[in-house]
């Protein structure tokens, strides 16, 4: 279902101060994050914090979404929704029935993430028609010294041997469900794990092992 009604503009917040260069900077950070899984990238403090979603998640959507990319919101977030409508013009989706058509997915409560099989994977001929999941997690760190999250070991393209990260908010079942998608390659799902202003890229090629 398309949110046809006009969002509440009184909740609208300013977007990037310098739209062109801020969007390019965020794009570069996301590109680096996906090219080097396991390394955390900062999108910079380009947006004011709010309680609905992290700076990294909102900045990524402001930089990547436009009128041709649909964004699925897990919850009706008034500030995020109005900002996306106003600054990007992206069609906003919500509800379980629209999961399969979303090109970007913003998960702000990863514990209640819908089953991964319900998102768009793309096809072998056009794997680019897959969804990119932007997951807001409460805790994100490199190496395994952090507490409050699962210790993950990443392997795959872009990683010399292995990379260790600690990610909170996502349980073992989520990572098992993600691993179960590997046989679909080249179709699959790309993840951007966001916390604060940092982002961790987990493209479909990255093998994640829960330690």
């Amino acid at each position: 279902m398309l949110m046809a009604s006009i969002p509440d503009w009184s909740q609208l917040q300013p977007g990037f101060a310098d739209p062109v260069h801020d969007a390019q900077g965020v794009f570069r950070a996301v590109l680096d994050a996906l090219a080097r899984p396991g390394r955390l990238r900062s999108v910079g403090s380009r947006l004011a914090p709010n309680e609905e979603a992290s700076i990294a998640a909102r900045a990524t959507l402001l930089a990547l979404a436009d009128a041709t990319t649909s964004v699925w919101l897990q919850f009706p977030l008034p500030e995020v929704a109005s900002a996306l409508r106003f600054h990007t013009g992206a069609p906003l989706l919500s509800g379980e029935s629209d999961l399969a058509t979303a090109q970007f997915v913003l998960l702000t409560d990863p514990a209640r993430c819908p089953a991964l099989e319900r998102f768009a994977f793309g096809t072998a001929e056009s794997p680019e028609h897959s969804a990119t999941l932007i997951v807001d997690v409460p805790m994100l760190a490199t190496d395994h010294t952090g507490t409050g999250g699962l210790h993950l070991r990443l392997r795959g393209p872009g990683i010399a041997t292995h990379a260790d990260v600690t990610v909170g908010g996502l349980d073992t079942a989520f990572w098992q469900a993600r691993a179960a998608l590997a046989p679909r390659f080249p179709a699959g799902l790309d993840l951007l794990i966001a916390s604060g202003d940092t982002v961790l890229g987990l493209p479909r090629t990255t093998h994640v092992e829960v330690c």
Binding site: L12, Q13, P14, G15, A17, P19, F86, H87
Partner: peptide, 8 residues
């Protein structure tokens, strides 16, 4: 006021 979208 604040700019939601500065003049462009």
């Amino acid at each position: 006021f604040v700019w939601l979208r500065a003049p462009q």
